[in-house]
Design a protein around this nucleic acid. Structure first.
Lengths: 347, 347
DNA sequence: GCCATTTTTGACTTCGGATGCAACATGAAT
DNA sequence: ATTCATGTTGCATCCGAAGTCAAAAATGGC
């Protein structure tokens, strides 16, 4: 009988079968299991000749180290949880694609969680813990006590377009306030007077930030905007424009939507329902700079979030904190780029 | 000294610290580690009173079973790899959202892989194997030998909108051929004569299927369409329309785009560059039924893939195969729904 | 060729939960 | 009370790779 732990014949067990272990490789290469382990860890003490022999055997058996065994002993899983509240929002797929690729590039896998509703977060956290992720990137609204759970467990997190309130947390965000201010400055300079705002749901962090900023800067100019609350989707934009026109008695000058999808809905509605020329009779601006915003039919005037740089920053910050626990929380705020587009007159 | 394996004080080690193990819980509850393990496995032999005691202790310590230890011994990881080629395609986020939620619902986590280019698949497979996923859902083009690698390892996979060629594989797909035929039948019935096709890249499975089907049915009517090859994105649609108009000498009747994004690009280009009325002077159809297709500015005539049902089917089929290995490959083909829209005249 | 270093190597233990098995407790049946 | 069936429990072992430590091999210096 073989000394120990040799994997049995596997179903379909020809060459390249599935269950090869380091013991199998060791036996084939005529070395110990420890040697195999070392052959796969860069920088371990092993003779080049031996490593080569082992690698040859490993290839022959289709051996890949078992991440679960490795994770158990090293306490590093190379998993990063990525939590995204509503994937169907046009904006998040871009973010997710960037994050996934950047994380892959630095040797981490993405464990994806998507929420049907923000209130499912607690339940979802219970699904994360067992996997002992090395870190998490979260684009959903975490309550302070939820952030604390990560902190208590020593799992570094990066909030994406959110910031922690009482509980400290590292974050990456696009400067919603500055972007909104820039848009409004332009709209005011072009002489707009009667403003409507199509805002997102109250439980959205960025949505509220953009709304607050818009209100503040309009107030500074002595303007009280009309307000409609939607759900960040296209339909809310249509519905929002209708509601605002009604409120304003049809004399709306400018509409600020707190994201692009709603702005596009508003544009289509303004054209088809009210037969308004854009930007001749009404200016409509959005926020995010998603793909369709630049399409010919819209050419939205909006603020583009530097998604790639933000994703890169999020990953960099996370990796830093994984490598070196206990780093100070840091907030990185990126300015957005004004896309002039053709949906608004800016001064 | 305690008998065995009691976790040390952890950083921030107050109540609810991170590293509680089953041994810690066992000690607190005054039972053996085995009992703790059984308390967490539904259907295990344990007295209700004991379980309760254990659960109380577990909660007090913030204990969550370690998925890595569990996965190591049970050889079930509850992980499913989801591979998506290009996430920025408008269509995939919907699919991903559905898949993630359905998989969560049946107790599986999603390990997400996204490809910058389809050729990265081999490299990516090397990242999957160590995690010993229970199964995989793949919306990217797998070569036969790649499918075989899954088969050899006994990992069930479901191809999404792809089918295996020589190597057998279970798959879920939308019937591209039938959908395309339906669109063409309608266009022909409405009297269109001069057709252009804006196709996707040659390495796309569904793209080629749609193209082939279109050609075949047009040929049956004695029509030879003009052809342009794009990249499935909006810009390709614009560019495609321009190219086709040139080829056709400006007398194009109908344009078949093999996905919605390109159709929308074509629509905008037809309107802005050629000042054509849609569908009065030219009919343009797409495929997929993505969100923006139904937006007011487009109201695309297209085939909507039943994404929810397809995702549900993919998950169901995968779970079946995980529970019961060695099932027969099965292909499920879903019919698409014709969205009449307003971008084409159908007979 | 011998001794002192420096590599390289293998035996053994560890990570944390699952499980077969035997021991034990409980209650019912005799 | 004795026997037997049934239900609980703990012990010991296992999963597969990583790391410790000390032994073994290779290298260098003289």
């Amino acid at each position: 009988m073989p000394k120990k732990k040799l994997s049995e014949a596997v179903p379909g067990g020809g060459p390249g079968g599935s269950g090869a272990t380091s013991y199998d490789v060791a036996e084939l290469a005529g070395v110990s299991q420890s040697a195999v382990s070392r052959a796969f860890r860069k920088g371990a003490s092993i003779a080049p000749k031996t490593r080569e022999k082992i690698m040859r055997a490993a290839k022959q058996l289709g051996y890949q180290p078992n991440a679960f065994a490795r994770g158990l002993i090293t306490r590093r899983t190379n998993l990063v949880a990525v939590v995204i509240s509503n994937l169907t929002n046009l904006y998040y797929p871009e973010v997710l694609a960037e994050l996934t690729q950047r994380l892959s590039a630095v040797g981490h896998r993405v464990l994806l969680f998507s929420l049907a509703s923000e209130s499912d977060i607690d339940e979802m956290l219970g699904l994360i813990w067992p996997y002992r992720v090395d870190g998490a990137i979260i684009a959903a609204r975490l309550k302070d006590d939820q952030i604390r759970q990560f902190n208590d467990r020593g799992i570094p997190i990066i909030l994406y377009n959110r910031v922690g309130e009482a509980e400290p947390a590292a974050s990456v965000a696009c400067d919603s306030a500055a972007g909104t201010r820039e848009l409004i400055k332009g709209l005011l300079a072009a002489g707009h007077q009667r403003f409507g705002i199509i805002a997102g749901p109250e439980d959205s962090y960025v949505g509220e930030e953009r709304l607050e900023s818009a209100r503040r800067h309009l107030a500074a100019a002595g303007i009280e905007p009309f307000l409609y609350r939607g759900g960040f989707d296209y339909r809310s934009g249509e519905e929002g424009l209708r509601a605002l026109m009604e409120q304003a008695g049809g004399t709306l000058d400018a509409v600020i939507a707190t994201n692009d999808a709603m702005a596009m809905g508003a544009i289509d509605c303004a054209r088809s329902t009210y037969d308004l020329a854009i930007p001749g009779q009404i200016s409509i601006v959005g926020f995010d700079g998603v793909g369709p915003a630049t399409w010919g039919g819209y050419q939205l005037t909006t603020i583009r979030q530097p998604v790639r740089r933000m994703a890169q920053a999020a990953v960099d910050m996370l990796i830093e904190r994984i490598e070196q626990p206990g780093m100070i929380p840091e907030q990185r705020l990126f300015g957005g780029e004004l896309l002039p587009g053709r949906s608004a007159r800016l001064g």
